[in-house]
């Protein structure tokens, strides 16, 4: 019996977004990263085209974080002491994008400064040829204060700036407009809110080709199902022609998975949780791969081993022949 494989006919595709600029494009990056462009649900090669694989961003910090799991800090070792070394290590891990997160305070407890931010951004740009993202610590006022100098310092590099949220996006978008960058538009797990913020940012004059959509996710066990379903719904809407849902999606399984108890804590937890290191690695990897299946175009990761682990899955899923 010849079974006819059912195929969906989609009418639209995900928008292509390119992060980073080479010297011809006014920047200094050795390569750029393009995501999006697919015209079917993730990896269903038989009913659409997939010009770009999902990409891996690796999070680095402007200084060694105080609150990361010891497992992560052990794995990173000395590289976590210096953003330039960290960026190079991330490149060696196989990152497609360096995701630099700025801290609210310096190591001695003083507020982070625009001068320090400029220096760090410069260091990272000099240390790697990869495209970069620069995002603030996630507190509106501080974010604005730190992202503007970062945008200036990286003028023309087509950096992904963030994080734009409904209550705080104007300053960051203005910085992106002024210095030829892109922005990350983040909304709390809701299809309509995702669309709205993209519209607001676009209304300020930033082309859709320069907006990455971050629908937010929870870690495995901590709300991943909400993020997963919102992403599936956004992607279905995108493929059926809803224009403002067609931005490629970036999500942060690294940060989400590494802040939960399962990865942070090794002692005093149930025995049934199993070996701490393996569990923590699984937590980040399975959060990431599950979100890749729901349409993520960029996932942000933290642990070196997981970058390799997830890379292999993406490569396998992206090979057009089985």
């Amino acid at each position: 019996m010849a079974v006819e494989i059912p195929k969906e006919k989609w009418t639209a595709q995900v928008r292509k977004v390119t992060i980073g600029a080479t010297s011809e494009e006014g920047g200094t990056r050795a390569k750029t990263l393009t995501v999006g462009g697919e015209s079917a649900l993730p990896f269903l090669h038989y009913e659409g085209s997939f010009p770009n694989k999902p990409a891996l961003a690796v999070e680095i910090r402007d200084r060694k974080p105080d609150d990361w799991s010891p497992l992560l800090l052990d794995a990173l070792g000395e590289t976590a002491e210096d953003p330039a070394k960290w960026a190079q290590a991330a490149e060696a891990m196989g990152a497609d994008l360096i995701y630099l997160v700025l801290s609210a305070a310096t190591a001695d407890g003083n507020p982070n400064t625009p001068e320090n931010v400029r220096a760090v951004v410069r260091k990272v740009l000099d240390a790697t040829g990869l495209p970069i993202a620069v995002v603030g610590p996630g507190q509106a006022e501080i974010d604005n204060e730190l992202i503007v100098p970062a945008a200036e310092e990286a003028d023309g590099e087509r950096v992904l700036l963030g994080v734009c949220e409904e209550k705080n996006y104007r300053t960051i978008v203005a910085a992106a407009l002024a210095h030829n960058h892109l922005v990350q538009s983040k909304t709390p797990m809701d299809v309509n809110l995702s669309k709205q913020l993209v519209i607001l940012i676009n209304d300020m004059g930033l082309p859709l080709e320069r907006i990455m959509m971050d629908p937010t996710t929870g870690a495995l066990g901590y709300g991943i199902e909400y993020g997963y379903s919102v992403m599936e719904r956004l992607r279905l809407a995108a493929l059926t022609g809803d224009k403002m849902t067609q931005q490629p999606m970036i999500v942060d399984p690294g940060a989400e998975a590494w802040k939960v108890k399962e990865s942070k804590v090794g002692e005093g937890v149930p025995e049934a949780w199993g070996d701490w290191n393996r569990r923590a690695l699984n937590w980040e990897t399975l959060t990431a791969t599950t979100l890749i299946h729901s349409g993520a175009n960029i996932v942000i990761l933290r642990h070196p081993e997981n970058v390799a682990r997830v890379r292999k899955v993406i490569d396998d899923l992206s090979s057009a022949t089985t």
Binding site: L220, G221, I224, E225, Y228, S229, G274, D275, N282
Partner: peptide, 23 residues
């Protein structure tokens, strides 16, 4: 049989099979 994997998989299954209308 590895609890560190089994736990993650069982939690994922619980999440995926949760009724989205009834969080």
């Amino acid at each position: 049989f590895d609890p560190s994997t089994l736990y993650a998989l069982l939690v994922l299954r619980e999440n995926i099979y949760t009724n989205p209308q009834k969080p």
